[in-house]
């Protein structure tokens, strides 16, 4: 029951923000703008979904932004080589998952802290991307991909739909399957999980692979929306994603967090950005407000937990 109240809290926070922005500038409330927010945040949203499960097992993945950039470059390169779209997309998500696998194996088999491993990969993959793109962006021209992603179903863009479908999928995995229970168990008490015969390494590595996979998918949306790929793309994605996950009620100590919370957390950040931008507030204030929201949401969460 406490959890439910917490969920309401997040929703209330989101609705209050929407109402405040709406009152100040009615243009904000136009359905097209609200759907816009969903579309614009689908990329960081998908990255945050992967980050959520990583944080639930008590890990962290700082390499997400670099993986997104790298996968984007791979995809753009493949498309300029006229490789069929489906094949290019598949290779892109495989590359993303592969980076996740490296993260997971180094953390669990190499027994190096997640922070260090993913910090290292963040730098190495960024460097790799700059190297193979010669630090230039790769343009794919007017593309099939762009038109597919901009297709709208009932007014919702394809990008946003992918985000929603992935959210539902991961929510199902976490809440309805034993796999999800194991993830929560490992995050809550890794030692006890081991003593109960859960293959901690295996499940943890899978989690990092999923995070990499999500980055691969996010990079597809990124390339689609820019019609090009940049080696410098995705900077600070790791921090935005962590912020969304934490606002969504996860604990960096592991064992806590939910896809629903992250979904709302992403929207809260998106609404702030879009709202302030529409109100023509300089971006400095956005940073201040986001910082404030992160701390307040954790504070509310803490009060409900200790009470």
């Amino acid at each position: 029951m406490l959890k439910k109240i917490k969920k309401y809290n997040l929703l209330v926070m989101l609705l209050v923000l929407i109402i405040i922005f709406g009152i100040i500038n009615p243009a904000f409330l136009q359905p097209s703008n609200l759907l816009n927010i969903l579309t614009q945040n689908s990329i960081i949203g998908i990255v945050s979904l992967g980050m959520t499960i990583v944080i639930i097992i008590g890990g962290i993945d700082l390499s997400v932004g670099s993986i997104v950039a790298f996968c984007g470059l791979v995809l753009a390169l493949l498309l300029t080589l006229n490789i069929p779209l489906i094949a290019a997309l598949l290779i892109t998500v495989v590359v993303g998952s592969f980076f996740g696998l490296i993260n997971g194996v180094l953390i669990k088999k190499g027994k190096i802290p997640a922070f260090i491993v993913t910090l290292g990969l963040m730098s190495a993959i960024r460097g790799g991307g700059l190297l193979f793109s010669n630090s230039k962006s790769i343009s794919i021209g007017g593309s099939e991909l762009n038109s597919i992603l901009n297709t709208k179903l009932f007014g919702v863009s394809f990008s946003a739909l992918i985000f929603i479908v992935l959210s539902i999928g991961l929510w199902y995995l976490l809440k309805k399957t034993y796999w999800g229970k194991y993830i929560y168990a490992i995050g809550g008490n890794e030692k006890a999980a081991r003593f109960n015969g859960i293959q901690v390494s295996k499940y943890s590595i899978i989690v990092y692979v999923i995070s990499g996979l999500m980055c691969g998918i996010a990079s597809i949306l990124l390339v689609g929306s820019l019609n090009s790929a940049q080696p410098q793309a995705g900077q600070l994605y790791e921090l935005t994603a962590i912020a969304a996950v934490v606002i969504g009620g996860a604990s960096l100590a592991g064992g806590k967090g939910s896809i629903f919370g992250t979904f709302v957390g992403v929207l809260i950040l998106g609404v702030i950005q879009n709202g302030l931008s529409i109100l023509n507030v300089p971006s400095y204030y956005q940073y201040i407000l986001v910082g404030f929201i992160i701390i307040v949401s954790v504070l509310i969460d803490k009060n409900y937990n200790t009470k």
Partner: peptide
Amino acid sequence: FIQASQDEL
């Protein structure tokens, strides 16, 4: 209305 960003997206 003035906005700034160095990020393509």
